[in-house]
Design a protein around this nucleic acid. Sequence first.
RNA 1: GCUGACGUAGCUCAGUUGGUAGAGCACAUCCUUGGUAAGGAUGAGGUCACCGGUUCAAUCCCGGUCGUCAGCUCCA
Length: 642
Amino acid sequence: MSLIKITFPDGNSKEFEQNITAYEIAKSISSRLADDALAVSINGNIREISTPLTESANVKFLTFDDAEGKHVYWHSSSHLMAHAIQALFPEARFGVGPAIETGFYYDFDINTQLTDDDLRKIEAKMLELAQQNSPFVRQELSKKDALAYFGEVKDPYKVEIISEIDDTANAISIYKEGEFTDLCTGPHLPGTGKIKFVRLLSVSGSYWRGDEKNKQLQRIYGVTFPKKKMLDDYLAFLEEAKKRDHRKIGKALDLFSIHEEAGAGLIYWHPKGARIRLEVEDFWRKAHLDGGYELLYSPHMGKSWLWETSGHLKTYNENMYAPMKVDEQDYFIKPMNCPFHIMIYKTKLRSYRDLPLRWAELGTVYRYEKSGVLHGLMRVRGFTQDDAHIFCAHEQVESEVIRVVEFARDMWAAFGFTELKFYVSTKPEKAVGADEDWEKATASMKHAMDTLGLPYEIDEGGGAFYGPKIDIKIKDALNREWQMSTVQFDFNLPERFDLRYIGEDGKEHRPYMVHRALLGSIERFFGVLIEHFAGAFPPWLAPVQAAVLPVSQNFLEYGKEITEQLKKAGIRAELDEKNEKIGFKIRLWETEKVPYMIIVGEKEMNSKSISVRQHKKGDIGAFAVDAFIAKLNDEITNKLIN
RNA sequence: GCUGACGUAGCUCAGUUGGUAGAGCACAUCCUUGGUAAGGAUGAGGUCACCGGUUCAAUCCCGGUCGUCAGCUCCA
């Protein structure tokens, strides 16, 4: 038997006899590793730990700490859950059950609606089954045999999937684990015994194959862990996330509200929330003026001509509010700003010398969103987009896109967001414009991203009907992604509105149009901003930058003096005149998450100074008022993020 | 919109297996004048989301509506 060379991630390598299993290799290194390894990566392909190696390879053992290992673990857990469901509800028919970033789910069809009690029963059953430590056994079948195995009646959903599989290249694989068999490509854990702790999180509806015309199945989400501490940490994370929730903080810090009586999805900005918004908008305006943009204001409604011409009445109708009659004409509240900017473009003959035109507006739009999708500030029915439209010549488009993406990145960085996820979305099924144009535009978007050296994912078919786009998504406290920035090509509107410019050649040309929003919408942005800082805004954004706390009523006058000085220096200061002990006031302002507290009593009054306490950090000592003002103003003007 | 859960004071929540409700915080008044995360007393505050039905009686049971939450679908 010949030897094969196995190379490990640390660069070391070792020789083994052919057909040795990955598990035995792991064991030869350490029994601990063999215990913890959930799967193995062989030359980058993830396989079962029991896989025999037949030739030299790079081998990495995957544990729960690796994303891939976790994925295998959770995928196997979804099988185990399906197994438990089958045992408890024999009539269940199964859809699909993948691992996801935060756990796993399984979709299934049963007639009874599952309750939370059922989830607890399924958890118990899973643990019971896991103790049997049944191995996951792979078996390969021909398409015909697979169809026969799952049988139309027994498993109609599996049959539907199998009938669409092209089995010319690879056989169809199934995995057996105890009494449960599932259609699956694997890989899986060596056995169910690795699954030690289970938490099923929720049961909800989900359409078969993600299509709302199909039957709605029941979906159970869950997580599993090999160690108790991991489960505890996870539950602690959920608790923490709840505390960071912008809806909770928004209420606690008196930032915004939404009123059932006054309409769902409509945001009321309270003084403190409005103050933060003002700072954000001021920053945004300045950045745009500095960045070569001009600002516009446009109306909130327009006649049906506008929306017929733009095509929105045809393609966007279901998101638009019903028209109102004014002088026998239908007027629509705007769901988008673009047609208005176009009207301005069309007010005169444009020259290639004018291009690119970069026109930005904080434009408030109203869109009908289905009741079930509304979510705090993140998904609302009236919102302000930090919108802009760039009208440019074809040859300018790519550099404009690069400019916008860079601008977006810088804008997010200013607020302390560095974890941005980029997506390039390609042509959807329903689309306008020639294939050739789509290809060119999509390629130039990808090229722009490559030029900037930014990693991105492709969202196949995720583009707007009028053009491909680059999106930036940001995660909320619960790791749910929200689309924020967007940069979109538009093949549609320049055509529909017959936009032109006179080129260097003296002939008429059609300009390209790029839609873009950097923050996305001010509302959604505020939502992620709140969760990002957990409500503890840095000084430049904080609605109250310094609270002045007299130790007793006797020092109110001195406190008033200090407050006036701070205010005169442009600092948002507030005097706490409450007749309470200092400890009480400190607690109050600490929960208000104000960046600085100024404590004044006899000591300070006599020495004409102040004592300063920083949020979360505590007492940072005595300051002369001027020195503190200088320090705070420095933090504010430089927009420092603690 | 769909599936499920939920809706009690300004907030966070108890509670009544059908007999019109309670705590803490917040608020008001008074006492207290205090040194880095809660001093004390008293008081006010609720058509138990809304509309119907069943019942001698509904906050509780049933139906509908509105809204919230977790997902699905859709989206900034």
